[in-house]
Amino acid sequence: MNFYDLQVEITTEDIYRAEGAGYQQPPQPATRELHRRMLQEAQRLVRPRGVSRTVAVAEAGERWIRLAGGGVLTSRLLARLAGPAESLVLIIVTLGEAIDRRVEEYSRHRLPAEAYVLDAAGSAFIDAAGRQLAGLITEQFQDRGLKTTISLGPGHSYWPELQDQRVIFDLLQPADLGVRVLASGLMLPKKTVSLVMGVGRDLPESAENHCHYCHLKRSCPLSRAGSGHADTHIRHDASAPGSGRPS
């Protein structure tokens, strides 16, 4: 098991993107000021941390992968891309609870604009943190002559079985990070993501990132399936802001 403290930086532009706000003209001063203020607040509140573990693949079918130890992950896409892998690397990244609490406070005090923008800042942070850690782990495997697949995660349209979160959770035991999983499969803190990548020498070709396989690729503000954003494919994500270090 490896634990990571991540240094992640985002900009107000990243927050606008997380909101799906594609301004053609500069936003109003009040909007800019709100975003500047919420970015500063988010920077103080988030504590991006992650945990990863590599688990051998025992067996793979058309729609599932059985891990050494018995856990089964049930995604057709995962099975197609990572079925031939020697192992899967399981990752959980979280920003911690402080930002959730603050968003709730703003909502409770009927300040929905602050709640909305701070939540979007959290989305931008967790997106960047997940990509950063996946990129870092990919580099570590590359140094050992191994390839990785793109990262996939339960809860997306290509992997609808949210209960698979429990399999990942049981193997990573992320309680040290303050992460827990609800009966529905949702993880808390809210700004937490789980990622799975196949690791091996002979892996099938895939699209640049998981967004290409997601039904929400045209509507999700964080989608990287379109041509509008710089490609930050995790396998070559040397430009991701900040750096991670095992701790």
Partner: peptide, 17 residues
């Protein structure tokens, strides 16, 4: 018209409140 986005809409609601 796509000049404003959800953040602006919510900000206006807050001012109104």
């Amino acid at each position: 018209r796509g000049e404003y986005f959800l953040g602006d809409l919510v900000l206006s609601a807050e001012i109104f409140q």
